[in-house]
């Protein structure tokens, strides 16, 4: 396995560097999390990760992340579609706007969202009479996570959509397909893997998000506490082993989820073979 003949030189050294680098940057800190939590006995560990308050936080974190990533997958696709397909004034500006959640400090985003969606905020004052409370509820968590996840979906789908040959749609239309049929049967399957990737990225980002959420969540025990907050709370109580235990549990869960999504993607790219080079469109 390590003795491959390849025209590209430097396989051994580059693999060695990759492993070294990954160890330094990712594996060592992560293993420290596990080592620290191993200072507890199994019973203590189990008690720490299955406390009712912690379980409630898992439900909120994973549930809200899933909802937020799903919302982003749908509306991010829409945004990408509009940015790729249509010409309109200030398109470049809108395009740049998409990246803002990347750059904005998450705390700023959190405080802003909390203010806007509060009972007397710009948006919150219209929702309050309808009986919808956003700030300081799980719904607020979803709003914050949707905000920070959007660019992941848009930026993943955009290049794929740009490369999608126009001829393919024309072919579908000439064969009698309606716009809806063309979208569902031709376009969506082609960009499906990209949507899935964007979804996975937004989901992963949402699970780990801390800064923007804690301001809008209200942090009511059993209702709107997210798991990263639980970890910080434990740390503030100098319960380092307890904090790392929850971190370890979350790490495993996230890893399994992402692995699952990756497998799903691998499966979908087998079902959808990549375009052959000569199917690329050439300028006429």
């Amino acid at each position: 396995m390590f003795r491959q003949s390849n025209v590209l030189p430097g396989f051994n050294i580059s693999l060695g560097f990759t492993i070294f680098y990954l160890s330094l940057v990712v594996l060592i800190p992560l293993s420290a999390v596990f080592l620290k939590s191993f200072t507890l006995t199994w019973d203590q560990f189990w008690a720490a990760v299955t406390a009712p308050r912690v379980l409630a936080s898992y439900r909120l974190t994973f549930g809200a992340s899933l909802v937020a990533a799903s919302i982003n997958a749908v509306f991010g696709l829409l945004v990408a579609w509009v940015l790729v397909r249509y010409e309109f004034p200030a398109k470049k500006l809108v395009d740049a706007l998409v990246d803002l959640p990347f750059a904005l400090p998450t705390a700023v985003a959190g405080i802003t969202l909390a203010t806007i969606y509060a009972k007397n905020g710009w948006v919150g004052q219209f929702l309050a009479p309808l009986g919808i409370k956003v700030a300081f509820t799980p719904l607020g968590v979803v709003v914050a996570l949707t905000f920070i996840g959007l660019p992941f979906v848009v930026r993943t789908i955009q290049p794929i959509l740009e490369d999608f040959p126009k001829e393919m749609e024309e072919a579908a239309a000439s064969l009698g397909a309606t716009r809806v049929q063309t979208f569902v049967m031709v376009i969506l399957p082609s960009i499906g893997p990209a949507v899935l990737t964007g979804f996975a990225l937004a989901f992963a980002r949402a699970i780990g998000e801390y800064g923007s959420v804690i301001f809008i969540a209200g942090n009511i025990p059993m209702v709107s506490e997210i798991t990263p907050l639980m970890i910080v709370t434990k740390l503030e109580q100098y319960d380092e082993a307890g904090a790392t235990s929850i971190a370890a549990a979350m790490l495993v869960a996230s890893f399994l989820l992402l692995l699952g999504i990756n497998l799903l993607q691998a499966w979908s790219s087998r079902v959808l073979p990549p375009a052959a080079p000569d199917q690329q469109e050439e300028p006429a």
Partner: peptide, 20 residues
Amino acid sequence: QHVRERQVGFVFQHYALFRH
């Protein structure tokens, strides 16, 4: 009349087959 209603068979230079 829309291309959909004209019932023409169109063959493209770069095939435009649905790759999935």
